[in-house]
């Protein structure tokens, strides 16, 4: 049961109330985890992202002025941390692949993606396709189709115009269609359309 109102919860956290922090975590950790999981495609990475996000949120919440919704601020932090993590991972992966050759199996990111315990083959294909999108396109697809944010909310999270979000969403959806079309998934889900 919630002990705080939304505004009261933020204020409590800003005052260093531990119960407030816990409540905040309970309310929002699934959203953060979901984004992390879809963005990285890896359970361990998603947990790391969630930890990083909340450690940062608790540290920075004193600076949250309430000009935007709390969750858009939270999503922004999440997206930034996901991007930072991926940047580091991809650099490490590329270096590893180029220099070490056979030292590692060489299928790094893709392999980790496929290791996800998605329930069905369809979900595995969708996740794989999502992971093939560029970080910008992937972010908008996740925020739109998994977090179900509106264009306005996504533009607040990403700090860009609605036009830009709309344009990225177009490209993301079209690219997803292409990738899934190559995988044959389109025939299953677009029949009779």
């Amino acid at each position: 049961m919630n002990r705080f109102t939304q505004a009261g919860l933020i204020t409590a956290c800003q005052n260093g109330d531990e119960r407030g922090f816990e409540e905040l975590f309970q309310q929002y950790h699934e959203r953060v985890y979901r984004v992390g999981l879809r963005y990285t495609g890896n359970i361990q990475e998603a947990e790391d992202v969630t930890q990083d996000v909340f450690v940062k949120v608790f540290k920075e919440i004193i600076r949250f002025k309430g000009y935007s919704n709390f969750y858009t601020w939270l999503y922004r932090i999440t997206v930034n941390i996901c991007r930072d993590k991926e940047r580091w991972q991809s650099r490490r992966y590329l270096l590893d692949k180029s220099i070490n050759g056979g030292w590692r199996s060489g299928d790094g990111i893709e392999k980790e993606t496929l290791e996800m315990q998605w329930q069905t083959e369809t979900q595995k294909m969708l996740q794989n396709a999502l992971h093939q999108l560029s970080p910008k396109l992937r972010t908008v697809i996740i925020l739109k189709h998994i977090e179900e944010l509106s264009l306005v909310e996504i533009s607040q999270v990403l700090d860009c115009s609605q036009g830009t979000v709309s344009s990225r969403l177009n490209r993301g959806r079209a690219r997803l269609r292409d990738i899934l079309g190559k995988m044959g998934l389109d025939r299953t889900y677009l029949q009779g359309a």
Partner: peptide, 27 residues
């Protein structure tokens, strides 16, 4: 093409939630 992409993207299912207690302890 975009609308088909949107329809495919709507097939994403919710993932299983994490172990909240363990995550909270680590945090």
């Amino acid at each position: 093409k975009i609308s088909e992409g949107a329809r495919l993207a709507s097939q994403f299912e919710q993932s299983a939630p994490p172990d909240a207690a363990q995550l909270w302890a680590k945090i």
